[in-house]
Design a binder for these strands. Sequence first.
DNA 1: CTGAAAGCGCTAACAT
DNA 2: ATGTTAGCGCTTTCAG
Lengths: 340, 340
Amino acid sequence: MSPTIKDVAKRAGVSIATVSLVIQNHARITTATKTKVQKAIKELNYHPSRSAKGLATKTTGNIGFILTDDHFLQTEPFYTKIFLGTELGTRGTNYYVLLATIARDFNSKDDLPRFILERSVDGIIVAGKATQDFIERIEKLDIPIVFIDYYPTTGNFFTVLIDNTNGGYVATKHLIDLGHKEIGFIGGDIPHPSIYDRFAGYKQALESNGIKFNKKNCIVDEDDPSRPNGYNAAKKILTQNKKITAIFACNDAMAIGVMQYCTDNGIKIPNDISLIGFDDVEADILLNPPLTTIKVPKFELGTEAIHLIENVIRDKSYNNKKKILVPIELIIRNSTKELK
Amino acid sequence: MSPTIKDVAKRAGVSIATVSLVIQNHARITTATKTKVQKAIKELNYHPSRSAKGLATKTTGNIGFILTDDHFLQTEPFYTKIFLGTELGTRGTNYYVLLATIARDFNSKDDLPRFILERSVDGIIVAGKATQDFIERIEKLDIPIVFIDYYPTTGNFFTVLIDNTNGGYVATKHLIDLGHKEIGFIGGDIPHPSIYDRFAGYKQALESNGIKFNKKNCIVDEDDPSRPNGYNAAKKILTQNKKITAIFACNDAMAIGVMQYCTDNGIKIPNDISLIGFDDVEADILLNPPLTTIKVPKFELGTEAIHLIENVIRDKSYNNKKKILVPIELIIRNSTKELK
DNA sequence: CTGAAAGCGCTAACAT
DNA sequence: ATGTTAGCGCTTTCAG
């Protein structure tokens, strides 16, 4: 058995209350007794039990991380990287993060993740899109919540977001700077705020550079920003407007699909078509050619979410920075090229 | 405040002990009182508190998953996939898994992960290589331990392992079946049991097919099975024996390095050299050409580890299957080709 | 500044 | 078959 607070109290010749106080670094403790107790702690190699502390303080030291099933399993490890980022974020804190998945179509018949029901988390991070039903259920739970890369359309939540609008702008601007004018946009799940904002950035860049927005250059009816949908979208867009010389795909998965379509059809990237993606997924660098893209710092999204939720847990009325915008970065590789 | 066991006891008109018993589905409870209590539970939407249960039973419902820093951060998401596999494995159980990383060179000055010190896990899974120092420290902890993809050289531990020897055999046999005779092997961190076994499989396949093992066809002095080391090894091996027509790289990371070396030097895969890797990493399919490899079911390694540790936690004297061998599978893509 | 003691919500003997 | 009760290891008033 590992030593308990009693053991160190006995050894230090004080009461357990005192021990508890020095552990919490409480003010009114003489340096003398403090050192005495700390000595005993060290000698016994004592570490307080989390369960006991938890029961006494109604606090668990855990943060729940919730992901929908499809995001958990998707090929590009986007959200799982964000999850790993939270691990990074907890270093130096006293938190651990518990991972749970919910159904993509979570509804009123579904149970909430067990860690919520059993009160084994002090806060919840929701990464990516979740159903309205789910959000409403956790909302009334009186537990801190932080969203990552998604925000419910109604309400004022704590969120950490990618700077998508700017990203869309920068991506498109890069293409424009290369001399392109007929620039296609390929999007999937366009109602998703992240995709929507990237599209908005695309339009802004066009507009502020004197290029007229052309609906025929946009494929936005794919339901999901996935590789196969990128493939389909490429087919559509390149058939419907032969003059396109560059494509901005709303994410790398779709960009990879575009690339596959191009190789299948003898279209050379970047000679015939310049292609830029979004996300900066691992695979990009292995592609042929390596994909120019907008890098989103996935780890950072996770660490920021942890910092934010820590603040909210510490101070229930925290109201400082409800929205955190994580900056993006243009990564130029070989899939984009000056228009000759 | 969420309801406690007292609330449901009161509502059901029984004692809290009774409530506790029906929750645990204890035998000697009349169906009558059982339904009565269950009704109250439902009406109150009661869920037992994990902390309280934990304190009373010295049990936490958590399993610790430990990874070295370098494995956590490496480009190929191999071990992190195994971690995700554990999440899959916990579905339907009452466990959550806590992720923690330790230093690659963990030594006596380092602290154990906090979840061990604070006793907030019921068992520990160690994925990948860890220092002897670390292993010795956790060994004397009297807590169930399961290793994944690594086993300490001394001692009889619970482990879930890839069938590496067979994998090495199958990979090499594939090359032999294609008509190759001068088959190179490229390895890194050869003392690692997994790599060592793959190498052993390579030798076995050669031997049982009447091909003499040739030390000159093997590069096994790289310290790490990484992309850059694969690149270097390719350079060495292809310089030192010009007759090589096929290469078995001990993992996909090294195979990718080999591929990069080949493209840099005008060597065509699979026309000049057939190449097979090991692991079946996401990127393989995007490579040019797509990489033939040995698939290791990473999720399954995780789920198996959870099942195993569950058994050990449930029955401290569990002794049934100490080693679980997860089968591999040959995935033929386009980087290997019949020798003309 | 420190100690005594109640209590957090549950489990598990032990009684009944 | 069910109830009583003593903990589990810690925090936190409240006294001293």
